[in-house]
Design a protein around this nucleic acid. Structure first.
Lengths: 189, 189
DNA sequence: ACTCAATGTATCCAGTGGATACATAATCCA
DNA sequence: TGGATTATGTATCCACTGGATACATTGAGT
């Protein structure tokens, strides 16, 4: 451990988020305990509280990461169809992470600066990909929301088993079809 | 307690769901404990297990009730706009209940017959209100899903603070506008 | 070298969901 | 009618959780 990053056990905050991501990937309900997380890291469970005020703060940190990753995934989207396909695939690929991201409430997001920033970044990317360049702000905002609502709604209803859609790529294509966005070849994985 | 419904403390199963609904209304995160619920009912916390296999079963029962109530609320909807407005208002009026309803997972819904039936009832009502009578099944299904996705997505994004929309009636109207369904006078409360 | 803040540990606590064993009351059937 | 049976509720226990308090250790800056 000659690395500069190492304190006692290394960069525990980062390691904790890494481990939390794994636990969430294993169990999308994110019902993991701080103790199991600490055990996974070989550390006293109380050590985590040096980096995260409480469990919610840890989840907020994980959510912030997720939104940053989502923004990076969506950034190259050249049009609404590509955006929506990429968005839906992200949520399907990492259902636990997506649940953590969208499970925070408004106040929790605003109380956590990095998370707020990460969400705003996604909004900015969405505006680029979805909104008509010349239009006024209200119109642009509505254009973004329409696509986002459809995508987020589809994911939520799918998870709750209310739609009974096919899963995987076919799901993304079906959502595009319903949204009125043609599912073109380049949108396939 | 000469009433036929009374056993020891009355119809505990129903009373438990009533009390749970209150607790969820107070705290939409539905983080209430079975013990607080039992205390509210003046009963040993273990008594609840005579009526519900576990905490999840109790939530499933509450969700089933919610969907039945939702179906009744939506049934009179004469057109998609009215349907969507009523749906959004239901979710805003009872955010905790709506979260419990949509928080169950696919397997949990199917494992609970009354819940499954209640969800199917809502789907039937939605088909009536949203789908073109003569169209083929796939088209009808997609018509339903489009509206439902928009409504559910809007509610979810609003709760997560990602849309920053106005709340209350203005929220419902804005969602209708985004969905491309005119907000007419009769949709107002 | 010495101090101090950052980090990690040890130990405790009240509260939780759930299990097992037992008590009581309502119903059913001889 | 009355005794057995079953539904319901209680008492008590358990492992586990998030979090608090007190203390130990380590690295960094002077």
């Amino acid at each position: 451990m000659t690395r500069r990053e190492a304190y006692h056990h290394g960069d525990l905050a980062t390691a904790a988020l890494d481990a939390a991501l794994e636990l969430v990937a294993e169990d999308p309900s994110a019902s993991f305990s701080l103790r199991s997380l600490a055990e996974k890291l070989g550390v006293a469970h109380r050590a985590l509280y040096n980096h995260f005020a409480d469990r919610e703060a840890l989840l907020a940190g994980l959510a912030a990461r997720g939104f940053a990753q989502l923004a990076a995934t969506l950034a190259p989207a050249p049009d609404p169809a590509a955006f929506m396909a990429a968005y839906v695939r992200f949520a399907l690929d990492q259902p636990g992470l997506y649940a953590v991201m969208t499970g925070r409430r408004y106040e929790q997001i605003n109380a956590h600066a990095p998370l707020r920033a990460a969400v705003d970044k996604v909004i900015a990317v969405a505006l680029d990909a979805l909104a008509t360049p010349g239009a006024d702000d209200d119109t642009r905002r509505r254009e973004v929301m329409r696509v986002w609502m459809l995508a987020h709604g589809a994911i939520g209803l799918q998870r709750a088993g209310m739609l009974r859609l096919r899963s995987g790529d076919e799901f993304a294509e079906e959502v595009l079809r319903i949204a009125g966005l043609a599912a073109r070849e380049e949108n396939k994985r």
